[in-house]
Write a protein that binds this DNA or RNA. Structure first.
Length: 483
RNA sequence: GGGGCCAUCGUCCAGCGGCUAGGACGCCGCCCUUUCAAGGCGGUAACGCGGGUUCGAUUCCCGCUGGCCCUACCA
């Protein structure tokens, strides 16, 4: 069988991280099956439509590296791939259902619907459309439909059950009496999701439906539509949701949920996908760090489990760190460059890569870590900080002077600098660590930095010396209390 | 209210009748070490409850409890 799967976002906002996970699973399945992946835009709600959303979908998926074969901008044999451009198709199918007696026009106003609902509520009854228009005689209904505003509703059987054998959840059954006469075509001529998804999945020859778990409760409606059309429903797999830390569906109030945000916060797309794939799926072994190619090999729908998984930022950070460390130096440099101020010297920046690679969890942490190399004015250590515990300011001035001598005359290599500095510490009767820390403060202005010897090497002899000198001056001018 | 789904460390997963219940994140130690990381080693911590079935249940069945989703002319 030829695999054809789709992901079908509605353009109501920017691309959500949960949609990325759903899309990823569709993508992995399509690629490992040598099948086709389709993007379809479900813009049947004109009120919630956001014009920029399509760009967000393309940008976001493009960034993570998911590619597809048929879609609004790619075209394909089953287009158009935007539902608002397929209106006449849905209308025609809805009319067919009416004429074969499986659907009917409904003329109830929204006001009536609302009052029926509140009445049912106050009586403690199930709130459901009362099927008021279902009994209008077909000829009469057709006549009214010609002039009156109306919707088309599915004629749901009074009882019986309908079932799905879900690829993830197994056998699920619903009593038909719990399902209302669903609207298929709205009064503005647009289809509802329930109609459009079935018509399109069928017309586009979709072989498997993989979608979020939250669709499971409305699946019986779709099954009923398939049945009414006499079409066979493709296999379905519902995917467990990505939850917020509080266990509810992940949403903006949990923090970042938009792909763009993760990009801006310095996450690597490969890390994001790796982490995301593991919410709801495991290869069954202890392997858990993968690139996309490896996931395409390993992923199996049978290994997707049922329970929703909570979002865990710490764990994402961990995976991001792993993927940062897995990058080659040039690749990391390119990613880092995007996070550095434009005026920072690129050649110097390139040389910082080995110093930061194992210290970063996100790319966004990079500028802070190396800013001392690019910004002379920003380095101003406080006098009090420069003096190690149990040392005096005067001693520290002397120690820095010795460090300056080494810095001026040593061969310009890590080995020579380190040897010289350790020798100087010995002569001074200082612990090497104390001298390194004083020097670190003097040269970088910070207590947490990349290794200080390498940092000095990158800074250059003259700049380093200037900073040591400045630190000495600061100490000599320091407040009396620390002299 | 109705329908559906789910249930192993704090979190993400493994387990698919017999295991000292495993890995990862986090956390805590130790090692390494010029700070911070990274890395290595070790530790902490879980089968929601009650009934069955079975020689034997984390695993199968039922109930309970809890959580979540849907219940729109939204998707």
């Amino acid at each position: 069988m030829t695999v054809r799967v789709r992901f079908a976002p509605s353009p109501t906002g920017s691309l959500h991280i949960g949609s990325v996970r759903t899309t990823l699973y569709n993508y992995l399945f399509a690629r490992q099956s040598k099948g086709t992946l389709i993007l379809r835009i479900e813009d049947t709600d004109q009120e919630r439509f956001v014009p920029e959303a399509l760009d967000s979908i393309y940008d976001g998926l493009g960034w993570v590296g998911i590619t597809w074969d048929e879609g609004p901008r790619e075209g394909g044999p089953h287009g158009p791939y935007v539902q608002s451009e397929r209106l006449s198709l849905y209308q025609e199918r809805a009319r067919a259902l009416v004429s074969q007696g499986d659907a009917y026009p409904c003329f109830c106003s929204k006001e009536r619907l609302a009052s029926v609902r509140t009445q049912q509520q106050t009586r403690g009854e199930v709130t459901r459309y009362d099927r008021n228009c279902r009994t209008i005689e077909p000829a009469r209904a057709a006549a009214r439909a010609a002039s009156e505003p109306h919707v088309i509703r599915l004629k749901v059987p009074e009882d019986g059950t309908i079932a799905l054998d879900d690829l993830v959840y197994g056998h699920v059954e619903w009593p038909l009496r719990a399902i209302e006469d669903q609207v298929l075509l709205k009064s503005d001529g647009f289809p509802t999701y329930q109609l459009a998804v079935v018509v399109d999945d069928h017309r586009m020859r979709i072989s498997h439906v993989f979608r979020g778990e939250d669709w499971l409760p409305s699946t019986p409606k779709h099954l009923l539509v398939y049945r009414a059309f006499g079409w066979e429903a493709p296999p379905h797999a519902h995917l467990p949701n990505v939850l917020g830390p509080d266990g509810k569906k992940l949403s903006k109030r949990h923090g970042a949920t938009r792909v763009e945000e993760f990009r801006a916060q310095g996450y690597l797309p490969e890390a994001l996908l790796n982490y995301l794939a593991l919410i709801g799926w495991s290869p069954g072994t202890e392997e858990e760090v993968f690139d996309v190619a490896r996931m395409i090999e390993l992923w199996r729908i049978e290994q997707v489990h049922k329970a929703g998984g909570k979002w865990d930022r710490e764990r994402l950070d961990h995976f991001n760190g792993l993927h940062i460390r897995a990058l080659g130096p040039d690749a990391l440099f390119e990613r880092l460059a995007a996070f550095a101020p434009a005026h920072w010297d690129r050649a110097l920046l390139r040389r910082t890569v080995p110093l930061v690679q194992e210290r970063l969890r996100t790319l966004a942490e990079f500028p802070d870590l190396v800013s001392f190399l690019f910004d002379d004015a920003g380095v101003k250590p406080a006098a009090a900080q420069l003096v190690p515990k149990k040392r005096e300011a005067a001693e520290t001035v002397e120690a820095l002077a010795q460090a300056a001598v080494v810095t001026r005359f040593a061969d310009w290599s890590a080995a020579a600098l380190e040897g010289g500095l350790r020798g100087a510490a010995d002569e001074l009767g200082w612990k090497a660590g104390d001298l390194f820390m004083a020097l670190r403060l003097a040269v970088t202005g910070k207590t947490v930095t990349p290794p200080i010897i390498d940092s000095i090497l990158l800074l250059g002899r003259e700049r380093a010396l200037a900073r040591i000198e400045r630190a000495q001056e600061a100490l000599q001018e320091g407040p009396p209390s620390i002299r």
